[in-house]
């Protein structure tokens, strides 16, 4: 039995706001609510990287958030997909080149799907999730790495004593 066809049946979402204006988050909540109801595709908002398949990132990634984002990404088991949502995630949006932002999600972790708009409508979000599921099915269980993985990994982990 090929198990990877079940990936498209139950995409579990981890949502993380990296310092945006919360507009996108309201749209995400709208898509969970009765009108759009993404649970009919089996999607759940898990809030826990250990059990999630899709990392849904909104916001421009502030400097404070970037290590958190890396850790969340590294704690997700493969196969996994990153979806950047909203204009801020695509290079910073209105926050571009501010002193405190990293100008978009793909400067920190690899992004698979981009959902444009400020804020994107729930339809666009669902479209993006469906796109992400397609990518998820083609991915393998091999470990994925972030940019400058080896240099950063020591900084990220807590030291055991």
């Amino acid at each position: 039995m090929k198990l990877n066809k079940f990936r498209k049946k139950s995409p579990w979402i981890l949502h993380y706001n990296t310092g945006g204006c919360n507009g996108c988050d309201i749209e995400i909540l709208a898509s969970l609510a009765p009108k759009y109801d993404i649970e009919r595709f089996g999607a759940l908002n898990k809030g826990n990287p250990k059990q999630a398949d899709i990392l849904l990132v909104t916001g421009p990634v502030t400097k404070r958030c970037k290590d958190v984002l890396r850790r969340l990404y590294l704690q997700m088991p493969e196969p996994k997909v990153v979806v950047a949502m909203g204009a801020c995630g695509h290079g910073g949006g209105v926050f571009r080149n501010f002193y405190h932002v990293e100008n978009g999600v793909d400067n920190i972790i690899p992004v698979d799907v981009w959902i444009p708009g400020c804020a994107p409508r729930p339809e666009a979000l669902i479209d993006g999730i469906v796109e992400a599921i397609e990518i998820l099915q083609t991915k393998s269980k091999e470990k994925e790495y972030i940019r400058n993985h080896n240099e950063i990994i020591d900084k990220l982990g807590a030291k055991d004593d």
Binding site: L3, R7, S10, W12, G42, P77, K141
Partner: peptide
Amino acid sequence: QPFYDFFKLMDKRAY
């Protein structure tokens, strides 16, 4: 749906 979740989880990398 619970069984879809079940088979999907089986296919994940073990952490």
